[in-house]
Amino acid sequence: MNPGMSAGLNSAIDAGMAPVGTPWFFYVLAGLAVASGVAVITRRNAVHSALALIVTLLAVAGLYLMLYAPFVAGVQIIVYAGGIMVLFLFVIMLVNIDRSSKERQFNRIWPVGLLAACALLALFVSAIAKGKALFPDRMMTLPESSNTQQIATMLYGEAGKMGQYTFAFEIASLLLLVAILGAVIMTKKKI
């Protein structure tokens, strides 16, 4: 997309169709996501962790909506919050043993893990601080009303023009089939 088109879109945004209250929404959603992420990794009870993860997933879906990605937000709510988390809650109820919630909750080598995570954090901070110039400040606005149609063209279109992910889409469906078979075979008591 050339800068001319982005200038046109930005002027349309300035003409009154701008998203309202954007910085406030961002800070609230981002704070909620990070706070719930902290709750996921620190709760003793696994059900509390799962509920905190649901809040994180919904906050990230809100962030996707702010990034002009409504279809990804919808897929996130349906697949992650509505599907995967229900699966997690079922499994937590199946494998729940009371003694596990009364033991220690961090494993034997937790200092090493924390050190490794701090090293990773230092790496990220240095990458973001040094590479700030690589992320230009232009916040282009993608057209929101045809987002689904454009994603559909990329996923289902002909291989020549704009249908660059058709083969990957078919492979993804094959992956899901293999995952279904794997999950069923893993959990059967007698094969």
Partner: peptide
């Protein structure tokens, strides 16, 4: 008028399952 209206509806109504699972637990 969200342009993913029906997707939003399907997703949010699948969040209702979570309420039932958690209340039973």
């Amino acid at each position: 008028d969200m342009n993913i209206g029906i997707l939003f509806m399907l997703g949010v109504s699948s969040l209702g399952v979570l309420g039932i699972v958690v209340s039973g637990w």
